[in-house]
Design a binder for these strands. Structure first.
Length: 263
DNA sequence: ATGGTTGTTCCACAA
């Protein structure tokens, strides 16, 4: 089973790219971020024609997340718990294909001397608390999406370029580690422990993609039960190389069928 | 140090 995540940077602007990706890559589950539309504007018919069910959390203009799956989607939960005042559409979670999946769009947090950065850190605290609760059930789950955090120096093209960027601040990376060290597996890094210059995002500016100047900020974090089934994980750079591309490219992993319990 | 680009909305803001 193939699970992928992709920040499309407007699903309206990216619908041809999305349709081509679904046809070619054939993920069983696709986690989407930055839809930039409301739920009633979601292209459910076009996506349904390709054999995908969808669960969506939208809002006008900004944010927006979705789960697409070839299998039925159930037990949909919209919004990250922990703050009733937070109305950003950044988190959706559901059951599909026998696993729990979440699509998340973590706040960017720039500039760091503004409330945007404290919102990012507060959001990460809530994600940590929610992850703690998910882990108590010992389920197979994946938290996938645009984390807007590069975990380590190897995940950025230039340490200088991100010295004051919220994606690489020590506070952001510490909050990411707090979640990871609960026992989750960064699927890409688990399969490619020594790979360098492996990025998932390249700015539209200054020819960044052509020059290989990117960041690894999109991640698939697996629960222990799902990490046991991890077969492969990689970054698919093809969609980023297209005309009218998103500034992010998909990350995917291949998961084996669950093995029956031996007792 | 600045400006480089894209998307959406309304002529700025977010990334």
């Amino acid at each position: 089973m193939k699970i992928a995540t992709w920040n499309v940077n407007s699903i309206k602007a990216r619908l041809p790219n999305l349709i081509e990706y679904l046809k070619e890559a054939q993920p069983d589950v696709l986690l989407l971020q930055e839809l930039k539309l409301t739920e009633d504007q979601f292209p459910e018919l076009e996506i349904g024609d390709l054999g995908y069910n969808s669960a969506v959390l939208g809002q006008p203009t900004y944010n927006g997340v979705a789960i697409l799956s070839k299998q039925p989607i159930s037990d949909v939960k919209r919004g990250l718990p922990g703050d009733d005042e937070d109305d950003h559409a950044r988190y959706i979670e559901a059951e599909t294909s026998g696993i729990r999946v979440a699509s998340l769009y973590l706040p960017n947090g720039n500039p760091i001397d503004t409330p945007k950065f404290s919102y990012k850190l507060a959001w990460m605290k809530r994600l940590a608390q929610h992850t703690r609760e998910l882990l108590e059930h010992e389920e197979a789950f994946v938290l996938g999406g645009d984390y807007n955090v590069s975990p380590n120096e190897v995940d950025v093209f230039s340490v200088n370029a991100v010295a004051t960027d919220a994606i690489f601040r020590p506070e952001s990376r510490a909050a990411f580690r707090e979640i990871l060290y609960m026992g989750l597996t960064d699927a890409f890094r688990a399969m490619h422990p020594d790979e360098q210059r492996a990025y998932t995002y390249w700015s539209y500016q200054a020819g960044s993609f052509r020059k290989g100047q990117g960041f690894r900020i999109d991640h698939l974090l697996l629960s222990p039960a799902l990490a046991d089934r991890l077969l492969a994980c990689d970054i698919d750079k093809k969609p980023r190389a297209q005309e009218k591309a998103s500034d992010h490219t998909p990350v995917w992993c291949e998961i084996s069928e669950p093995t029956p319990s031996p007792w």
